[in-house]
Amino acid sequence: MPDTQLTVTLSGEGVGDARVVVRALEQAFGAPDELPSDEKATVHMATFTGEARAEGSPTAPGHLSAPVAVTVQGAPGAVRRASETLARAFTTRDEGAASGDQEQERQLLLEP
């Protein structure tokens, strides 16, 4: 199993903001299995299963039009790295976390 198995659930204004968040995570995790695409959906998901990328200077992924609630779930290292990546790219508020034996989950609110 790859060390970066990560599932991201996003809810907010629309698919455009979901794509902006996913693009920010691509810098650390590579491309997701699929980009959010359903214009009518109110909740979007992306799964990253590749190997972690080397850390570098993040590029600006774009701007959010509204707040986006994000839940990242996966291996503890992947969740930590996703949280750090999002905190560098956006104004981020930690909304809580839960830990299991082998997985973690963290809720974040990303603000425009």
Rank of each mutant, 00 (worst) to 15 (best):
S99A: 15
L25G: 01
E84L: 11
R81L: 12
P32L: 05
A87K: 10
A52L: 11
L35K: 06
T71P: 05
S65L: 13
F48M: 08
E111S: 12
A52K: 11
E103L: 13
D3Q: 13
V22Q: 07
P58D: 02
D33G: 15
G56C: 07
A78S: 10
L10Y: 03
G14K: 04
T85K: 02
A54Y: 02
S57C: 09
T47A: 13
G96F: 05
L25R: 02
E105G: 09
Q104V: 09
T9S: 15
A46D: 03
A24I: 01
L108T: 06
A52G: 13
V15F: 05
P112Q: 10
Q27R: 00
E111G: 03
T91D: 14
V8R: 04
A69V: 07
H63C: 12
P76V: 10
E105C: 07
F48K: 02
T7Q: 14
E105L: 13
A54P: 08
A89V: 05
G16A: 14
L64D: 02
R80D: 13
E103Q: 14
A54G: 13
V79K: 03
H63E: 15
P67K: 05
V22C: 02
G96A: 06
A98K: 12
D17Q: 06
S65R: 15
A69G: 08
